[in-house]
Design a protein around this nucleic acid. Structure first.
Length: 859
RNA sequence: GCGGGUGUGGCGGAAUGGUAGACGCGAGGGUCUCAAACACCCUUUCCGCAAGGAGUGUCGGUUCGACUCCGACCACCCGCACCA
């Protein structure tokens, strides 16, 4: 027998043993069980970048705590894992290092799976898939065809970033300061015919349904609400005085029709049909518009750019006054995608319009003034909240004094009655452009035929699989552009309708499509249809979804749309149109960034493991240290958890990422805490060793104290887990461990407490918990044992300590029976020395007793 | 620029409007040891010998009482539709 001192915590031996035991017991294989309520917990699946990082460990450990806890309280749990496997990095790797995106991706998946398995996550690995599996994207193509037939997909022109040197389309992140990241050439905006999902059909529904998502963070619902951007306004036309033929009316949309009498100019987007027309006939316009198109395609770039305009010389008439003419400017800040692509500017009540008006010498008449201050606008626009009453001096509808909101309503009503436009509800949300001119994505399953036009591929021909090589020659990724476009044997095909020679669509889908339905596929991952009705009915919805706040808008909004599209096309039940019942957004794991520059002065990033003392290990070159930011593949500021697991075990890594920082907040990775976590787990192990050896002696007085603490710990830890406060659950476990290690209770009581401690720790450190559970005589696997219940009778406290405040400052305290009536508490408080001293013989002005909480004496 | 969030000891953080700093890290002191490591015990918001005072990014407000609610500001972080 080993003595106490010899017993050492050796996670390397323990962890593999229990992982094998779980596997042998099929402990985490999800099965439809009509007798039990189901619980579906899902973490956002990873991109197979090549290795896991601490952000993954944090994300999946949180999900694992939930999965293991829900299983212990009796649910039939589904906890799957897969890979978000399409995307640009695979193609970039092929360009930089040679090889094929498919080999790179599957190789990465194999490595990352091997890195993840030692974490001991309670995942049903039988359901694993990658979105680049033809079995997965073939079903996605089938749904695309269904959505096309349901009118949810269409084609239209849209602009892309075009690199004129590499002759390729660039992603926004590949455009740096308006230049292509590889070529350095000035990026142009180019228009292409592209595929779109009609998410705008669902704008109102996606907005309204947010109210029902009670278990989503309020901030996410607010961000989505603002993103969808519902607005009520007036759409009307200015009649042109001297416009080219066909442009005698300019339709504008405004959310502030109450300011119509403050209009000083009309602005149109550089992409507006009128601007396009003028561009062709006027070189000065062409030059200005070309400048505008250099700004880039992101809203951020447009908003930050200097606001500039070009006077077209065209004049329009004010709808209320035939003699009032307004100039028409092309303005670089007006989006063609929003409203009608044309606005009227009211400089007095919009800062951007005011800056513009002052720049071009346009008037800025006040429409309304503050009730108590009628100073005219000069350099700062007067933009009060719409709910605030103001005095209209150029109003035309409603009372002189009214709120902006009321004035807008009155203005719309009046304009409609005069035949000037009509009230419309607009949305900021644009249709989802899914075309990508890239290889490594799900091919869009349509064929272009000279006679039949755009024809969907026949479903029996799915998947339209990506070609691996071309007639035996590996695809060349060193050439910029889309390899599918220059792959005749793949591209040329027969029209599915008429059989004539035709060409495949060479665009692939946005990777957001892949991640918009994977949660549904997990319910029947091997089905030969996208979903299986019985499985979807049982497992949907996701009960708890966990992922980064960076996905608060796009991924989650697209998934909400896609679920509705799947309901419409019969792939999900109506009840699954909101796919995620509860959402938790974890904070990110941050780390410093290490950067050097290459010969051309471009930034090169380095992994932390390649850096030592501020220098590259390989060359000794000094690195520039950029302050902590979100761990990202592109910045290479990722930490490899594999080293931590090898040194201390998975349980230490899991314990560490859960402790200290609240899960919703960012955590800066430091190596300091890992050793401390290991020490604590070692202490728990030693404690278990000691307690297991104790004789099963008779009950002592200390037993009740220990068992009370145990029930308190059960209650507190359970509540903390339910509330996603894992850092607090761990703090409670520390406290209970300290109590237990000092307890004078009997062996039997300590063994009971130790067994319970193991159970409470099991969701966080499952391997250690199994080992202690077995040693303390627990039956079966702790992974399959029911969650302990707190006895309410053991939670009641006999006495409480009440702090006594004098004028809100704590001065003293009294210990009283928990159920002492308020009057008695008052008497005791007034008899307290500090109170007597403060009152100095007088009477208190006020005496506040909050039962069980506090006493405040106001003197 | 627009939208959303965060801010508390040396550090990570705790606190249904009711004792600010639970729990952990680090640090200091001690016990054990030939010594070190480990382990264990004590101290640890700041100023002050003490009595006492100050204190939750800044300024102001509501309240018997504010980290918590309200207003203004500052700093940092996330998103901005082709990064995933």
């Amino acid at each position: 027998m080993s003595s106490q001192n010899d017993a050492r915590y050796t996670p390397q031996a323990i962890e593999i043993k229990w992982q094998q035991a779980w596997e042998a017991a099929h402990a985490f294989t999800a099965q439809r069980d009509p007798a039990r309520e189901k619980y579906y917990v899902l973490e956002m699946f990873p991109y197979p970048s090549g290795r896991i990082h601490m952000g993954h460990v944090r994300n999946y450990t949180m999900g694992d705590v939930v999965a293991r806890y829900k299983s212990a309280v009796g649910f039939s749990v589904l906890h799957p894992m897969g890979w978000d496997a399409f995307g640009m990095p695979a193609e970039n790797a092929a360009m930089e290092q040679g090889g094929h995106p498919k080999d790179w991706t599957y190789g990465n998946i194999a490595v990352m799976r091997d890195q993840m398995k030692p974490l001991g996550l309670s995942i049903d690995w039988t359901r694993e898939f990658a979105t680049c599996d033809p079995e997965y994207y073939g079903q996605q193509q089938a749904m695309f065809i269904d959505m096309l037939e349901a009118g949810l997909v269409y084609r239209k022109n849209a602009v892309v970033n075009w690199d004129p040197v590499d002759m390729t389309v660039l992603a926004n992140e590949q455009v740096i300061d308006g230049k292509g990241w590889r070529s350095g050439a000035e990026v142009e905006r180019r228009e292409l015919t592209q595929w779109f999902f009609k998410i705008s059909d669902y704008s109102e529904e996606l907005l309204d349904a947010l109210d029902g998502l009670k278990d989503w963070p309020e901030k996410v619902r607010l961000m989505q609400r603002n993103w969808i951007g519902q607005s009520r306004g007036l759409q009307f036309a200015f009649g042109a005085v001297n416009a080219p033929e066909g442009f005698d009316r300019i339709e504008v949309y405004t959310t502030r029709p109450d300011t119509l009498l403050g209009a000083s100019f009309v602005g149109i987007s550089p992409d507006h049909p009128l601007a396009r027309h003028l561009e062709r006939h006027d070189s000065a316009v062409a030059e200005f518009v070309a400048e505008c198109r250099k700004i880039g395609t992101t809203e951020e770039a447009l908003e930050k750019a200097e606001k500039r305009g070009f006077d077209t010389g065209i004049r329009v008439r004010h709808p209320f006054d035939n003699d009032w003419e307004l100039p028409v400017y092309i303005a670089n800040f007006i989006l063609m995608d929003y409203g009608t692509g044309a606005i009227f500017g009211c400089p007095a009540h919009d800062q951007r319009d005011l800056d513009f008006a002052r720049k071009y010498g346009l008037p800025h008449p006040d429409v309304f003034v503050a009730l108590e201050d009628d100073a005219p606008v000069d350099t700062v626009a007067f933009v009060p909240p719409k709910t605030e009453p103001v005095r209209y001096i150029r109003g035309f509808a409603g009372d002189a004094v009214q709120t902006g909101a009321d004035a807008v309503d009155a203005a719309i009503a009046l304009c409609e009655s005069r035949g000037v436009g009509h009230g419309v509800t607009n949305y900021r949300l644009r249709d989802w452009g899914l075309s990508r001119q890239r290889y490594w994505g799900c091919p869009i399953p349509v064929v272009h035929c000279a006679t039949c036009g755009v024809v969907p591929e026949k479903k029996e021909n799915l998947p339209v699989a990506l070609p691996y090589d071309e007639d035996g020659t590996p695809i060349d990724f060193s050439v910029p552009g889309n390899p599918l476009d220059r792959h005749p044997s793949w591209r040329d095909c027969a029209c599915p309708k008429c059989g004539a020679p035709a060409r495949r669509e060479t665009d692939t889908m946005d990777t957001f499509v892949d991640s918009s339905w994977y949660y549904a596929r997990f319910t029947s991952p091997h089905s030969d249809t996208p979903t299986n009705a019985e499985d979807a009915a049982y497992w949907m919805n996701v009960d708890q979804y966990i992922g980064g706040i960076e996905h608060a808008i796009l991924h989650l909004l697209y998934s909400r749309f896609f679920a509705r599209a799947m309901v419409k096309t019969g792939h999900l039940p109506e009840s699954a149109s909101e796919p995620f019942n509860a959402l938790f957004t974890q904070g990110m794991v941050t780390h410093e960034i290490y950067q050097t520059q290459d010969a051309k002065g471009r930034a090169v990033y380095h992994l932390p493991e390649d850096v030592e003392d501020g220098k590259l290990k390989a060359t000794g070159e000094a690195v520039r240290i950029i302050p902590s930011a979100k761990m990202s593949k592109s910045k290479k500021n990722v930490v490899d958890p594999v080293n931590i697991i090898q040194a201390f075990g998975a349980d230490t890594a899991r314990w560490f990422v859960l402790s200290d920082s609240p899960p919703e907040r960012d955590v800066e990775w430091t190596s300091a805490g890992a050793e401390a976590a290991f020490k604590h787990l070692s202490r728990v192990w030693q404690l278990s060793d000691r307690i297991a050896a104790m004789p099963d002696d008779t009950t002592t007085d200390a037993d009740t104290d220990l068992l009370r603490a145990m029930h308190r710990a059960i209650a507190d830890v359970t509540k903390a887990i339910e509330n996603f406060a894992f850092n607090k659950a761990i703090a409670e476990l520390y406290a209970f461990t300290n109590t237990l290690s000092k307890a004078q209770a009997s062996g039997a009581a300590q063994q009971t407490a130790m067994r319970t401690l193991a159970q409470l720790m099991a969701p966080m450190v499952p391997h250690l918990a199994e080992d202690i559970w077995a040693r303390q005589g627990g039956a079966g696997l702790v992974a399959q044992a029911p969650w302990p219940q707190a006895d309410p009778a053991m939670l009641v406290r006999d006495t409480v300590v009440l702090p006594i405040q004098i004028n809100g400052k704590r001065r003293s305290e009294i210990e009283v029976p928990a159920d002492l009536p308020k009057e008695e508490v008052e008497k005791l408080a007034l008899a307290d020395d500090a109170v007597i001293k403060a009152l100095a013989g007088g009477v208190p002005k006020k005496l506040i007793v909050v039962p069980g909480r506090i006493v405040n004496v106001v003197v």
